[in-house]
Every structure is written in structure tokens, then in C-alpha cells.
Design a protein around this nucleic acid. Structure first.
Length: 443
DNA sequence: TCTGGGGTCCTAGGACCC
DNA sequence: TCTGGGGTCCTAGGACCC
């Protein structure tokens, strides 16, 4: 038998993060918004229960907000990222083989744990996680990743499992697969879901016994892999260390429509410097930079979408050099008279090259260039993001992203640590926090 | 239906080569 | 000018994920 795999998934993660540091939100419906406070990207259980859907725009729930006293938050990625680190660190105490799959999910390789009562072990992980981080998780255990996702989902939906379900037992596995709609299978999205239903394949069990030739033809080898996984044959390996990215994108919608070349350039310059920083973190150098701009496709205004790709002969990781290409690109694709909604930058065609090799081939002083970028990175790491930045990325940034409902960065910013409110007794404060042992939170 | 951002993998088809 | 087979590389587009 193959090694059991567990997926640990934080319940309502963003909403939970907001609640941990603001106990008066207990029992209140919470929603978290996308960039620019556009649409709802996360909801607390209470918000789900009153029928607020994922992807709804904020303005559409104004009436409900008043009626149900819904608390609204802009995305606070610094807070969520920090809480995520705490969750992952906690998991590492239970097994060394943790694959961080997303900000709120991780796979655990439980090879070697076969003889334990895995249900009980999972329950213990769940208890400790809540105690140490304040985050509720659900855990699914099975013989493949795809099955573990199904177990997890089932545990979350059916209260009687109290957040933990193992499908190592074959009889239970079949029963759960029969109750799992094809749309709810990891790897089956809207298009494939529709296709499967059209051909009479309605649930996960039916997909597991479907004709494999047909699946491969219509859903590529990816679909075939899903079928194998549903049958308990693992096809998806673990990635304990994230592989370097093959492409890095930085783009953002403007806080309001932008018309001026100067603003477009400022934004593009900022995204170049962000993308390039990310690239340097993984020690890559790029040979391709593309920039793109577009108007709002959902507005009735005149539309314009365009992009341009610069190929760079000698791989570079210099912000200054890439800014040059990006600004040239913007000059090429910018047209006056449009209401721009978004601009973005993509780096790709990476090379992992020892920096000293770069200097052999060309005339630019790359040693000097890289010592500048290294210094800038170092200062920003120590003193905080954007302590030093390129002037071309703008000082005012009045095109900037809207975050009108952002909570404090409780865990990472000295000025925004949770405060003891005047007029509230210490006893009351302690009561608010007492459910959670805020281990490790005292800085 | 409305209107985020950042990724991955696979396939088909064209350009080009022998 | 037509005809054959086989291979690589690249890109665009489509599917999926969180």
C-alpha cells in the first residue's frame, strides 16, 4: 500500500485571520475583498450561511451589509502571509514532509505513519493547530492527493466528521466518491465538468471507472491522471521545496481609470521593480520582458488591449536595465485617449547563471549594476519594503490600488500591534483572547 | 454573474531543418 | 514543380489550480 497523504486546509482562512486579532468579530459575518475592494474573495462561515457568494461585487451586498451587520475587509496579504507561516511551521512539528501547496493548504506525506490511528493523529493536529494559531483546519487522509482533497471536502461539509476524515478504508471510499459531484474533484473545472455530465459521468466514482481512452482523448493526460488517482494510484508527486518560477507576473488594476502616459509608466515601473525583486529571490536572470496594458473590458468605453515582448540577449536581473526595456515597451503600446484599467509586466525565459559569467560577454558594467541592486535589496529587506525605490515608480501614485477597509498588520508592524483599548477592563480583554493561546505572538 | 492576481501544464499548429 | 518522412522549437490558446 502506498503512503497515506493528508491535506490540511484552513477553514475560511482570510476571514479567520481577521477574526483572530479582533475577537469582537466573533459570530459576525465577515467578507474579505479583492484588490481595489472589487469583489468578495473570502467569507466567514456566517457570511456563507446567509448566502453571500464568492465573486460578488461589494456594492451588490450593501443592503445585506446593513441587515446582517456584515464586517468588510480589504485584503491584508501581509497579515495572511504571516499567519500562513505560523500554520506551516506548526505542521512541521507533526511530520517533516510538508508540502506547502497554497497560502492555506498543505499536503503531509504520512509514509511511515501507517500503523498509527491516522484519524486520531489528524484530530490531534487539528486540536493543536487551533490552540497554537487560532486557525481551524479540516484534514482529509487518503492514499492519493486527489482522494485526500475529496476526503477533506467531505469532512468540511458534513459536521458529524468534526473536520477530519480518512478514506483509507475502501468501502467508505466508494461511498464518498459516489456522493462527490464531478465538479468537486480536484482537476475537474467548469469545462470538463460540463463534458463529463454530458456523457453521463456525474460523480467521482463514475469517473474512476470511466473509459480511460476516452478520458485521455477528451481531457488529456491530466484527466487520465485524475482517474488513476481516484483509483488510489498516486500520480502526483510531492514538491517539498517550491521549484523556481518559470514566469513572474506583476500586474494590478488601477484604483481608478488612468489616461496619462506618465501614470501608466509609473505603474509599470513599480511592477518591474516588484517582479525583478521576486526574480532575484530565486536567483534567476531574464531574457524576456513583456508589458501589457488594457482598458476595462467590462465597461462600455472604447476598448484597447495591447502588449509587447522584449527579448534580451544577455540574461539580466538588473532593475535599472529592465526598467529601460519596459519604458520603451510602454512608449510603443500606449495610445492617447483611452481609459486604462490595468497594466502589467511579465518576466520569463529565465536562466540560472552565475553572475560572474555575465560580465564576459558585453560592455555594460554588470558588476557595478549588480552591486547596486544587491544594496537596494539589502536595505529594503532590513528597513522594510520600498525604503529605497526607483523614482520612476512614482511618489504620489494616485493611480494606486484601493484598500479602504484594510485591517492592521497586527503581526508584522510595530505600529499596528493589537492594542489594549482604553475603557475596557483587562479582564474583559483577557476573556476575548482566552480561547486562543497566542503562543509565539509575544514579540 | 461579475469583473482579482498569479501561477501550471498540455496540445495543436506553424516555421524551419535535414 | 511536386512529392515524403521525420524531427525540433516556439507560440497561442485552453484547461486547471488557489
Amino acid at each position: 500500500m502506498n503512503a497515506p497523504v493528508a491535506i490540511v486546509d484552513c477553514n475560511n482562512f482570510y476571514a479567520s485571520c481577521e477574526r483572530i486579532f479582533n475577537p469582537e468579530l466573533k459570530g459576525k459575518p465577515i467578507v474579505v475583498l479583492s484588490n481595489n475592494d472589487g469583489i468578495i474573495v473570502a467569507r466567514s462561515q456566517e457570511a456563507k450561511d446567509i448566502g453571500i457568494a464568492m465573486g460578488q461585487p461589494l456594492f451588490k451586498i450593501k443592503d445585506m451589509m446593513r441587515k446582517y451587520d456584515i464586517r468588510v475587509f480589504s485584503s491584508n496579504y501581509v497579515l495572511y502571509g504571516d499567519m500562513s507561516n505560523r500554520v506551516m511551521t506548526t505542521l512541521e512539528q507533526f511530520t517533516p514532509d510538508v508540502e506547502i501547496y497554497s497560502i492555506d493548504e498543505a499536503f503531509l506525506n504520512l509514509g511511515g505513519f501507517e500503523r498509527m490511528d491516522l484519524d486520531e493523529y489528524a484530530r490531534e493536529i487539528r486540536r493543536k493547530m487551533y490552540q497554537w494559531t487560532g486557525i481551524q483546519v479540516s484534514i482529509g487522509v487518503a492514499s492519493t492527493k486527489t482522494l485526500s482533497k475529496i476526503a477533506n471536502r467531505f469532512a468540511k461539509k458534513n459536521k458529524e466528521y468534526e473536520g477530519v476524515l480518512s478514506l483509507m478504508n475502501a468501502r467508505l471510499r466508494r461511498e464518498v466518491l459516489e456522493k462527490t459531484d464531478v465538479y468537486d474533484i480536484w482537476g475537474v473545472g467548469r469545462q470538463y465538468g460540463k463534458l463529463l455530465k454530458k456523457h453521463g459521468i456525474n460523480n467521482a466514482y463514475e469517473l474512476s471507472i470511466a473509459d480511460q481512452k476516452w478520458v485521455k482523448k477528451r481531457m488529456t493526460v491530466m484527466g487520465l491522471r485524475t482517474v488513476y488517482e481516484l483509483n488510489g494510484i498516486p500520480c502526483i508527486s510531492y514538491e517539498y521545496a517550491p521549484p523556481p518560477k518559470k514566469a513572474i507576473v506583476s500586474s494590478r488594476s488601477f484604483g481608478k481609470a488612468v489616461t496619462e502616459l506618465r501614470d501608466v509608466k509609473e505603474a509599470a515601473a513599480l511592477f518591474v521593480s516588484r517582479a525583478t525583486e521576486k526574480m532575484r529571490e530565486q536567483n534567476s536572470a531574464t531574457t524576456m520582458l513583456s508589458v501589457f496594458i488594457r482598458t476595462n473590458p467590462f465597461k462600455n468605453s472604447r476598448q484597447y488591449h495591447n502588449g509587447v515582448l522584449a527579448k534580451i540577449k544577455i540574461p539580466t536581473d538588473s532593475t535599472a536595465e529592465l526598467l529601460h526595456y519596459a519604458m520603451k515597451g510602454i512608449d510603443q503600446i500606449y495610445r492617447k485617449g483611452y481609459q486604462y484599467q490595468k497594466v502589467g509586466v511579465m518576466l520569463s525565459g529565465f536562466a540560472q547563471i552565475d553572475k560572474s559569467q555575465l560580465a564576459l560577454f558585453d560592455t555594460k558594467d554588470r558588476v557595478k549594476m549588480s552591486s547596486i541592486t544587491e544594496t537596494v535589496d539589502k536595505i529594503n529587506l532590513q528597513m522594510g519594503k520600498e525604503t529605497v525605490f526607483y523614482a520612476s515608480t512614482g511618489i504620489n501614485r494616485d493611480w494606486g490600488t484601493k484598500f479602504e477597509h484594510r485591517s492592521d498588520r497586527f503581526t508584522t508592524n510595530w505600529h499596528e500591534l493589537p492594542k489594549v483599548k482604553a475603557g475596557v477592563t483587562l479582564k474583559k480583554q483577557l476573556e476575548m483572547f482566552k480561547e486562543i493561546n497566542l503562543r509565539g505572538f509575544q514579540q
